[in-house]
Design a binder for these strands. Structure first.
Lengths: 196, 196
DNA sequence: GTCTATAGTTCGATAGAC
DNA sequence: GTCTATCGAACTATAGAC
């Protein structure tokens, strides 16, 4: 029975603290103490605080990308409406199953050090491109500029749930349904209006 | 010709820095230097860094509340769909016209010191209640639990624009239209489904 | 692989001169 | 109302013992 790697345990502790009190407010002493070692020892595993941050953010985005691809693979949906719905559920499930890692992209990425941000941008672009392609396929008659807006608004709606979703008081599936209905009905209605 | 009050100038500088680099990363020395004074002098105007933060957040939320009420007063819309659209535009306009103040509620409020958060909660609740009442009036046949989800998703979609909206490449009105269509069409479609 | 000890910085806040 | 000077605390990161 393998023990969890120290590097992984440090990343878990760091992710938890980053997302609960913020990056700047989280000290290496605090991270280290949460895994039972001293601050100086952290430097055996990581070169800097920024490296921990970068690794955590990369891991978070990889989870989202893997989640998207898993939906593609498992899906046997017939309609685009259904495919979209599955991806919305998938996004929300991966997001909330790994909140400490994934929520940082919503909450703190914006003020991350430039060097950290630079290393993350390609991976984030990759995920965004997957969604753009999905929406273009689902709404072939919607102008590209509007697809952009739709994707950003959809991300905003889904990701805001990190602040308010409480697993004890509702299901992710219910939220996914409401959101999918909104964006699907709104976009198809607009398409019909333009077609007239 | 009255000069801008020093307190106001400090708040402007602080809000700008808080929103661009984050609260913890912003030093009093930096704020002070941006208005041409020294860090020690800030304490003549404010009791602490937290007090500046609280005042900025309160001012930001007051702007949103005033904006909502201004829409109510000016509105001569006939349909609920139109009233909702006006409020979406209003929210987005006030949000983006005062980004340094208002965006902090989206970006940093979550990790604000407990004492700061406590002083803000009533004011934020007030604004949220206005929107809940609006949505309940607009969608009288939608269950209350779903109104909650709709409001949170709508806020998420609207507020995410602080990260991506570029006044040079699109209009707030266009975004407001897309969003209003989405939430209106989705919610009304769901109502009809339930009614059947 | 973890420890102690500490260098070197920066921070919020205070005191007192002007 | 702003200044200088500084206190005490906290931080990242390094060096070297074990």
């Amino acid at each position: 029975m393998a023990v969890v790697a120290p590097k992984q345990r440090l990343m878990d502790a760091a992710a938890e603290l980053f997302s609960s009190i913020g990056y700047a407010e989280t000290s290496l002493r605090h991270i280290a103490s949460n895994v039972g070692i001293k601050a100086g020892s952290v430097y055996y595993h990581f070169e800097s605080k920024d490296e921990i941050y970068t690794d955590v953010l990369l891991a978070g985005m990889d989870l989202m990308i893997d989640g998207f691809q898993a939906v593609e693979t498992d899906s046997n949906s017939t309609s685009m409406r259904e495919t979209l719905a599955e991806h919305v559920v998938g996004h929300l499930k991966v997001l909330h199953a790994n909140l400490a890692y994934t929520s940082l992209h919503v909450t703190t990425f914006r003020t991350a050090p430039a060097a950290v941000r630079r290393q993350l941008v390609p991976r984030r672009d990759e995920y965004e491109a997957m969604w753009t392609a999905l929406l273009r396929a689902a709404l072939p008659n919607t102008p590209v500029s509007e697809i952009s807006i739709l994707r950003l608004a959809l991300f905003g709606a889904m990701n805001s749930s990190i602040d308010w979703f409480d697993a004890g008081r509702g299901s992710l599936e219910e939220f996914a349904e409401v959101i999918t209905d909104a964006f699907w009905a709104g976009a198809t209605e607009r398409q019909q209006r333009v077609a007239q």
